[in-house]
Design a protein around this nucleic acid. Structure first.
Lengths: 158, 158
DNA sequence: GATGAAATGTTATAATATATCATTTTCTGA
DNA sequence: TCAGAAAATGATATATTATAACATTTCATC
């Protein structure tokens, strides 16, 4: 069984740091500005292993001393989502960092209903099944939402 | 290519009627009451080929002469959803009738972003891919959301 | 430094959803 | 059949999520 979540003891700060570097690269490539606000929102999202709601981000930013209004957060989220740096988890109305912003992919999300952690998978078998099914009914895919809720291994066994 | 939506000329009233009959059977089997309100909401959902929002249902009921408040609609939706008679489309915050309320299944939804129509699929290849992926990471599935947005064949070609 | 485009600030409000308590309806068992 | 309990609905208020519209600031470019 492969790991759903990062192994114990992994250096999360380092992950966040590397995600930031990736994000910068992507923005650069797209000629998009990775502004302060966008960086802050991105970082807050990446600092969590759970999906984060817009208003949680709002609160976090306010706690940091910035007085911020909803549109500011939603704009940052829209920007990050459009570049593929962050994914929206539809069934949670919340946002989650994307591991692989640099390549096109149909991602899948595992959401543990017990501990709340989220993990992105890029499983070709799932993606291909979706693509094939769409093809079979003459459907042209624009976007897919694959969210799987249940118990992660830790929560199921402990 | 198989059809995504019902063929032209199919008798939709008859579909709705048969869905109602099915719903009654399911409620019976579960010892659940298919009350007037629940029947009305169910029917309104089935009369549409699109997903319907709670407030659209509210408006429709009000137009029918009932003065109805949000909790009433949400309660009916919760009831119908729990029995599997209706599915929530997470990416639309809307509801859609389920063809196969009598059997357990992991459904998939095709949503045309042009005409707005929705179709449920029960594609074993997709379901199995999801189950297998979950198994592979030791994840116990409670519920899945598979929503595919894009262009249906009609909209892509016309 | 002037200019225009992009980003953010600000205010207001729309859209979606639920908590709580009151009332009515339905079922159950004496 | 009717008293009591359970289920469903009504009513009121409010929480949560999201966007519209216009003002101001920031930033790249000339």
């Amino acid at each position: 069984m492969s790991d759903l979540f990062p192994k114990k003891g992994h250096d999360h700060d380092r992950c966040v740091h590397s995600a930031l570097a990736q994000a910068e690269k992507v923005c650069d490539a797209e000629n998009a500005r990775f502004t302060d606000m966008r960086r802050k929102v991105f970082t807050l999202i990446w600092q969590s292993h759970k999906a984060v709601t817009a208003y949680e981000l709002l609160d976090a930013l306010t706690a940091e001393g910035q007085r911020v209004q909803p549109p500011t957060v939603y704009r940052a989220l829209e920007f990050l989502t459009e570049l593929g740096l962050v994914h929206r988890i539809e069934s949670l109305n919340a946002y989650f960092g994307c591991d692989r912003p640099d390549c096109e992919h149909l991602g899948q999300y595992f959401i543990c209903t017990d501990c709340g952690r989220v993990a992105e998978a890029v499983n070709e078998e799932m993606s291909n099944a979706v693509r094939k099914a769409a093809m079979g009914v003459g459907f042209t895919i624009q976007a897919t939402t694959v969210e799987i809720k249940g118990l992660c291994h830790d929560c199921a066994t402990h």
